[in-house]
Nucleic acid binder design. Sequence first.
RNA 1: GGGGAUGUGGUGGAACUGGUAGACACGCUUGGCUUAGAACCAAGUGCCGAAAGGCGUGGGGGUUCGACUCCCUCCAUCCCUACCA
Length: 802
Amino acid sequence: MTDNYNHKSIERQIQKKWHEEKRYISQKDNREKYYCLSMFPYPSGKLHMGHVRNYTIGDVISRYKRMKNFNVFQPMGWDAFGLPAENAAIANKINPREWTNKNIENMKTQLQSLGFSYDWSKELRTCDSSYYRWEQLIFKKFYDAGLVYRKKSLVNWDPIDKTVLANEQVIDGKGWRSGAKIEIKEIDQWFIKITEYADELLSSLEDLDWPENVKLMQKNWIGKSFGAEIEYKIIGQKKSLVTFTTRPDTIFGVSFLAISPNHSLAIGLAKKNKKIASFLEKCKETKAAEADVAKGEKLGIDTKIEVIHPLTGKTLPVWIGNFVLLNYGTGVVMAVPGHDERDYKFAKKYNLNIKPVIENDNNKFPNVEKGILINSGKFNGMTSEEASQEIIKELIKLKSGKELIQFRLRDWGISRQRYWGCPIPVIYESEVPKVLNEIDMPIELPKLKANSLPVPLSQNEEFVNIAKDMQRESDTFDTFMDSSWYYARFTSADNDKQIFDENTKYWLPVDLYIGGIEHAILHLLYSRFFHKALRDIGMVDGDEPFKKLLTQGMVLKDGAKMSKSKGNTVDPQQFIDKYGADTVRLYMMFTSPPEQSLEWSESSVEGASRFLKRIWNLVSKRKNIKLEEKLNFTKDQLELRRKSHSTLKKVENDYESRFSFNTAIAAIMELINFIPEKYKENNASNEQKFCLNEAISFSLKMLFPIAPHICEYLWEKFNDSENSSIESSWPLFDMSIIEVKEFELIIQVNGKVRGKVFIEKNMKEDEIKEISIGVENVQKSIGANTIKKVIFVKDKLINFVI
RNA sequence: GGGGAUGUGGUGGAACUGGUAGACACGCUUGGCUUAGAACCAAGUGCCGAAAGGCGUGGGGGUUCGACUCCCUCCAUCCCUACCA
């Protein structure tokens, strides 16, 4: 028997060779470039299955593209700032930087053991000042461009720990560590005007080669809506309340206004009214996350304030509603219970007036469809569309409103009250903020003193207090800032003189970006915004950062996302140790297509391992002999050649345009299964050997992107030469070998398969009909019935309708 | 609450453009090899049925000669929801 497949020594040997050859360090050259980027990881400690899957996909495509003679750039780095480092520091009394660096070291070893072809010479980590100094510069440039401003906004406040909590740190309305009931608090924060780019972020989605569902999610998130801004005068005051609505046609159905509990009017009232004050207190207990606000019980309180309806002149009550979001629209909702689901429920609960003003086929409350206006004075009888236009005209005439385009997208709050993040380069002189100049950068994150735990920078007096009446900004950037431009910095990561350079121009945009579907909105939208803003200040070219996007699904176990809290994680390392990188990579690619979620199953790993062993046993003791004499193939031999070439064609298509690795692997398995036993024997004919060797060569090449170590090792032994690199070229298939004269005709009766028969292509329909009817089983099915109709699909099927 | 997906044998999945449902694997069953096991090899394996045949892609309805694929509706699960990354 042959030597056993020893993945450990093979993988070590091949990886050493790659490293010594510096094979995956990329440089500009004349070939077409291909920048293949996988989302960089947060260094949480060790790789999880999602990482392994993500990075295998990226590596398979990178390796395939290299074989297709593209100049591939595939870098890797670390999204190294963030909350978990602070948590770990507090839990284990480890310095966040040490913790992070240790994790990076470990995860890098893991990535290398998986044989990913990264250009490590461009490695970066966002927690190094060599990275974030440039982020501080970008902030300054954005500030100079008028994209940065300060505004009050809401945070989750833990009154015991005296810290701001992230949404995930609030559990059932309580701080996760202190257990204190959280409070919603308003504080000053830095914002970036992403809304200035709302229209472009929406319109340029169209040209992106991205999955339709991601584009749709972004479109809905940006949420451009056409409607009207309507003003309601407050009785007895000079002020008025302004609302935005997408349905001005329903204005005669307004029965009350609802304002946000955080609206200045509500806060003002609470000062004089105890009931309102206690209602607002109650509202503060719901955490700031939109999902929690929306899912919570709808509560309201009558303010006893009244406004005047601009068209009817009637008075309407003003309520405070906990479902009204301050940061969407104006923080005031005009409630039309007859034609809005939420308003209807609220009106029912608090016994408020419900008045139908739209009529259509669907006559039950609430009727949210458009229709014909009723109970709307002179607008009665108009369609919703007509009425909307006319009502806006009327409001403009009365100076009580205007047409307005509104975006759901809000400006990006980038301040975080934490330690482990990039310091915001601002100082306050007598409380007036001043953004620092490049010469004063970087503002280094202060090191923690030995044995001290991370606390928000605001509590670090040494850092904050520069002089009397001069303080440093103590907030850090949202970590989404760090990840919004790293794709560009990779191209110049080794340049400490400039943020970007001529390599940036060469490599951008990213040709393929691969990452989890969970980033479909935030990260991808922020990065798109950054690119456009960087473009407008002249730092990068092009309108979009990521030309093509591949979103991979979750890795699940027992139907649930693998997570520490559920205790259903599976550590990939044990499988790398036991089966080797090639098997783990093969398993990951074989078990489900990239965009779908993947259900982890250990027994399938066995299957992947078995297949590689079969390849090993087939190839390891065989040599590819050059045959000089002319070969004459039999029909059976040509069948194998046809299988080899058609498999190659299929695999190429699966890699290139479908990213369908599981079917590519299945096809290679089919080809291996298809090889007749006698071709493998020593006394096989030259023709048989040729066909076998062709199948082996193709298989090794086709499998190389997925299982590179074993394929490269076997390729070299098989070809007895180290000069012919497996990576040098992708083979060509021969169409003349693939094409066949015969095909299997499917014969149906009333759409059901009743027979199959092999016939020559290009036969006349009449002939085919005759042959088909002649088939015994078909004859039986037709019986005495007359054939009413014949459906004929060329080279495929014939269907008799009786 | 809103937005986006997914649902096919015992399991992961295939069917790419409306045209053979279940490719390729895992598992299982039987046999071979073996002192035994592992590994490996061979055959079988959607469900019901003795067979003929019928049924079958989350449930219900529709379009079509023909539907996993298109339309309507209901259900279940997952992701995102702006401070997890």
